Simulated scan of single mutants.
Amino acid sequence: MKKILGITSIRSDYDLMSSLYRLLADSTDIEFKLLVSGAHLSQIYGNSVDLIKNDGFDILLTIESLIDSDSRQSRLKTASLFLQNAIDTVAFYQPDLILLAGDREDVIMGALIGGFLEIPTLHFYGGDHTQDGHIDNPVRHATSKLVSAHMVSHEEHRQRLIRIGESPDRIFTIGSIALDRFVQHSPISKSELRRTLGIQKGFKEFALLIFHPVTEEQDSCHLIFRNILNTLKRKGIHTFVSTPNTDPGNKKILHELENYHQDPMFFFFKNFDRDTFLSIFKNSRFIIGNSSAGILESASIPIPAINIGLRQTGRKVNKNVIFCDTSENSILFSIEKVTSASFSASLTEMHNIYGNGDSAPKAFNIIKSLDFKRFLYKKEDPLQQSPEIFHGG
């Protein structure tokens, strides 16, 4: 029986992968377990390990690794705690394959564990690229050089991995697994949402705001967040507002959030169950902030996505996404643009460039059919890559 270990440290990466996790866990010839760490185990960030337990997945180990601080040292310390506490358990369990998703600190630690313990590793969402200066971007690329094989969301991502010296034989283009459950989900109505959440007034129409700090905006992230809230209030748009992720700068945003906590225009939340969150998302007039959900999932509804500031800049996007700067005037102009009849009309029959919601079965079939041990040793010389590959061949 093939043993597969998935690593997850935050609600976002778990949601990206959970549809594949389900296929693996339900397979009779695969033993699938999760190594759970970081924000999943933090009450401040919603204790999302409970969602994993409710989904019925087998947890090999939980690691309380999160250093909840705004300092630049905190993510490095979090990474070191994860590494030291995971090594012996992974070595003892000796999985046949380790699954890694995304670009956070635990992902590159998982790649190092697999490399040094000679366990094949499979990385999802590599080859993507942003121009925001955030450390996650080079972490993603560094992880790609450490892992055994890749499953990417778009042909452009495949080409980028080839450019950094990865062999095409190691790369599988499957689309984004994030879309699988998203596309298949049937949302509850707006009226049912209001009843479930106990909302007595307003929110007959609403937006969704997800905004995270980024390194180059760390000193001003709370001011940007304030500008977004002020503009939404100025336009009279009720909004569901997510708390930020664990990146440095989040405390400033959380403090700013307290100033609006009683404002009836906003409904603040840490974690909803998946059905509630996706129903809010799919019933929203638009999504605003700087979340990857605006880049990936919003086009499958479709609804407009307004990306504010540096985060996500440079990524390949669908035509429903617009970028703006962080001033109230720019945010106001963007809201007025995406809520116009002409913009809405332009999104009809739009196809999401990141897939159709059938990526998890593709990944599952590849995992079932391949022996990833043949990808373990990376002997290729990047100088010997065929030049024509770089032109889409």
Rank of each mutant, 00 (worst) to 15 (best):
L34M: 07
E192R: 11
D180C: 08
L83M: 11
E297Q: 10
K251W: 02
K3P: 09
S27V: 03
G127C: 05
L122H: 09
H129N: 10
E192H: 13
A86H: 06
T243P: 00
D26L: 03
D128E: 14
A111Y: 10
A79L: 01
F333E: 11
E166V: 12
K33I: 02
S340P: 02
V36Y: 09
A207H: 03
F372Q: 09
I308P: 00
S327K: 05
V36F: 15
D219W: 08
I108Q: 04
F375M: 01
R160G: 07
I228Y: 06
N259T: 04
I44S: 14
D275I: 09
K3C: 07
I7P: 15
S340V: 04
D50Q: 12
D136S: 13
A79M: 12
F286Q: 02
I44C: 02
K319A: 00
S148V: 01
E328S: 02
P95A: 05
Q131F: 12
I253N: 10
Q218S: 15
D358T: 15
T243W: 13
T348W: 08
S344W: 15
G294K: 06
I164E: 12
I237Y: 05
A363Q: 07
L370T: 14
R274W: 11
L296I: 13
E156A: 15
R315K: 00
N307K: 02
S189A: 12
Y14R: 01
I44E: 15
P382E: 04
M350T: 14
A178C: 07
D58F: 13
E380G: 08
N250P: 00
S69V: 04
N137P: 00
D106G: 03
F364H: 09
E216R: 15
E328N: 00
I322K: 00
K282G: 06
I306Q: 05
V49L: 04
F390Q: 13
S42V: 01
S167Y: 15
A111G: 14
R104G: 06
K319P: 01
I98L: 11
A149I: 12
E118G: 08
C324V: 06
N137L: 01
A25P: 00
C324M: 04
I306A: 10
I108K: 10
L112D: 02
T78S: 14
L41Y: 07
K3L: 07
G56R: 09
R194E: 07
V241R: 05
N47G: 11
L376M: 09
H40I: 09
L34S: 08
H261I: 10
T313E: 11
S340G: 10
F375Q: 05
E380R: 13
I237P: 00
Q131M: 07
